[in-house]
Design a protein around this nucleic acid. Structure first.
Lengths: 215, 215
DNA sequence: TATAATAAATAAACAATGTTAAGTAAGTGA
DNA sequence: TCACTTACTTAACATTGTTTATTTATTATA
């Protein structure tokens, strides 16, 4: 039965088309300005058609969010290449922030937007976000094994560091970076990431201060 | 002409009634679930009446946001009572986070929500948010005068610390605190605020580690 | 006090939104 | 050819923010 398969293929192609079109429109005009009718118009189908492929608007958001989580995870895995745990941790943070700033709409969707009502979907989100979190925890653990963050609970450390990079990213995405006229945004970010580093006690070697943060 | 004044009084009373009712509904059901018609129904006027007192829905949000900024500033000024600059800075952060967590809807409105289209209003926001930011900068400056944060640009330091507390607050408000089963949220927050402290090099006295963070 | 002018409130409509139910057209299997 | 399933659309629904025209109440003037 090759027909059944072709039908399935077409079905998933259509889903992808809708998804991709939706994201392009979102990136272009921002989420709240895009309606089901806009998407429908763009792909030249009727609005109702979209509901044959997605339960509702939230499901489209959910799919895109998942995509974002996957992309973020991919980037963060790059940090694993570095052997020095502190450098790796820094790279991890850099990857996080640069993902956020290069894909502000995705980041918004993933971490800033109030999630829509549905609860079952939420849970899945958590699961996929969790692998990024585990990566972070592993990085931290290795730092601890080298004597960094003495006496700190690992979950506290993870949450703290996550808070830090999330704070940087989300403030800038919401335009709060304007508060600083003197410095460019990029310098501010580099400075902020370095700030924590500057402030970390000299438990390891002391090359830190000269470490370069360019992504 | 006592009548003119009474009219004005009535007008502003009505504005306040709408404002207060709106906020109560928001606190109760969340922003996105409250409509102009809901507010109108609650105060037993027609929806159109609200437009005699507010330009549009965004203006109501704007007023509430301003209220929030004022409240936050008030709380943060409390930190000025402390003489030790590091303790004061910590208190400042505590005030910020506890404001956020005790008034998550306000905090959302002020720092997390994507701002509505209007631009002129935005600017005013900035002005009022700016005084909180200046307070932070002053605290940091005094810390620096005592040798803390050596070699760090003051704006970078301010942005970094702000990012940190904002990250903590906004992650928790968006329910990302669930990631940690072992610890209670409150312990996590205290831990996070302490984290930075633990990590700050011993440039000042060394009472830090035993410092209590209870608000 | 009667009437004109002003202010306050409303009813009714508008266009846009997400979503659904009923209907149509096309493709698939016998 | 004829039933049946699939893909799609049309048209409607209720709800949203907002505006226009109209009515009701209040104040000022004669």
């Amino acid at each position: 039965m090759g027909i059944k398969e072709r039908k399935l293929q077409e079905k998933s192609e259509m889903r992808e088309l809708i998804q991709k079109t939706a994201m392009n429109l979102f990136l272009e005009k921002g989420f709240e300005n895009i309606t089901i009718r806009h998407i429908a118009e763009k792909i030249e189908y009727s609005p109702a058609t979209i509901y044959l492929y997605f339960k509702n608007k939230d499901e489209i958001l959910y799919i895109l969010r998942r995509e974002g989580f996957e992309d973020l995870y991919r980037r963060q895995k790059d940090s694993l290449k570095l052997k020095d745990p502190l450098k790796r941790l820094l790279k991890h943070g850099e990857a996080y922030v640069s993902f956020a700033l290069e894909n502000p709409q995705y980041y918004d969707l993933m971490f800033m937007m109030r999630s829509p009502s549905t609860r079952t979907k939420e849970m899945n989100d958590m699961d996929i976000g969790l692998q990024s979190y585990e990566l972070l925890k592993n990085n931290i653990k290795e730092c601890m094994e080298k004597g960094l963050f003495p006496g700190v609970n690992i979950d506290v450390a993870a949450f703290s560091l996550w808070s830090y990079v999330h704070g940087i990213a989300s403030l800038i995405i919401r335009g709060r970076g304007i508060m600083f006229p003197e410095e460019g945004i990029n310098d501010m970010i580099k400075g902020a990431l370095n700030f924590l580093l500057e402030v970390i006690p000299d438990k390891l070697d002391s090359k830190k201060r000269s470490m370069n943060l360019s992504s």
